[in-house]
């Protein structure tokens, strides 16, 4: 059996008396696109926040590439190779698009503060290298035309793309996208669909998505995990999930079945 890229087992998180995530176990294999779906308040974003260390779990374990990451701080988790975007956008509104992407590469910078102060040649080379890499991401996300604008001045769909570019800038093996299609129009969603495929096929990224937009989820997912009230209630290929009575009940209520 191959070792999973991400292995979540018996994950638990309570906020005071409210149990947000309970007995959640799943895995993500290298090269997969996996979606987590479920009604509002099902614990999907909480699961993301637990995986990336925004807050620690109250129980269970998370392994990434075989090493334990649960309870680790967000920046350390990112360092290990998990990148993410946020449900309610956490781009840097007062930085240009290019600077947003460059901040994503902060950890890759090898020039010290001293070389930066003295403007030594090493600093110039390093900046050129980072900028070249930023160029590739800016082209990939089709942000070329707006690269020197402040992120705050972009339309919502573009801001989402900036955040994805920033997450990619840290070279994650696993990319977590929290509702990437929220606020996007159908054309933009189509582009997102293509982008996710390209990320998997051309760039070898493994992708875990929380998303409400069902047609997108059904099209791009290799597997779907369905959550309700903090628990996993179903898992399978898109067609399996579509047929599952439990899923229908969670979404439409018991009376409809």
């Amino acid at each position: 059996m191959t070792r999973q890229l991400l292995e979540v087992s018996q994950l638990h998180r309570a906020f005071g008396g409210l149990v947000a995530v309970s007995e959640l176990s799943f895995h993500v294999t290298d090269g997969e696109v996996v979606s987590i779906i479920g009604p509002n308040g099902a614990g999907k974003t909480t699961a993301f926040n637990l995986i990336t260390g925004v807050y620690p779990p109250t129980g269970g374990s998370i392994h990434f590439r075989g090493s334990q990451v649960s309870g680790m701080a967000l920046h350390k988790v990112t360092d290990l190779g998990i990148g993410r975007t946020f449900q309610n956008l956490r781009i840097f509104p007062n930085l240009t698009v290019r600077d947003n992407v460059l901040v994503g590469m902060t950890r890759k910078n090898k020039a010290s503060m001293l070389t930066a102060c003295l403007r030594l040649p090493a600093f110039g080379r390093e900046e050129a290298r980072l900028n070249a890499e930023a160029d590739r991401l800016i082209d990939l996300l089709e942000l070329r035309q707006v690269e020197s604008q402040l992120a705050r001045n972009l339309p919502y769909g573009n801001q989402r793309r900036v955040e994805i570019a920033r997450a990619l800038a840290s070279d994650p093996a696993l990319l977590l996208l929290d509702e990437p299609a929220a606020g996007m129009n159908p054309a933009e969603i189509e582009e997102l669909n293509n982008l996710i495929r390209r990320l998997r096929d051309e760039f070898g990224k493994t992708i875990l998505i929380v998303e409400h937009h069902m047609s997108l989820v059904m099209e791009i997912s290799d597997r779907i995990i369905v959550m309700d009230q903090g628990r996993k209630i179903a898992e399978g290929t898109p067609s399996e999930v579509r047929e599952s009575p439990l899923v229908v009940r969670a979404y439409l209520g018991a009376g409809m079945v």
């Binding site: 781009i91 902060t106 950890r107 840290s170």
Partner: peptide, 24 residues
């Protein structure tokens, strides 16, 4: 420099900075 970009980014969003692997 990268340091300056990171501190300006931190002013906008600390969690965002942490999410790219930088310890704020």
């Amino acid at each position: 420099s990268p340091f300056g970009r990171a501190i300006r980014a931190m002013r906008d969003d600390e969690l965002g900075v942490a999410s790219v692997g930088q310890d704020t």
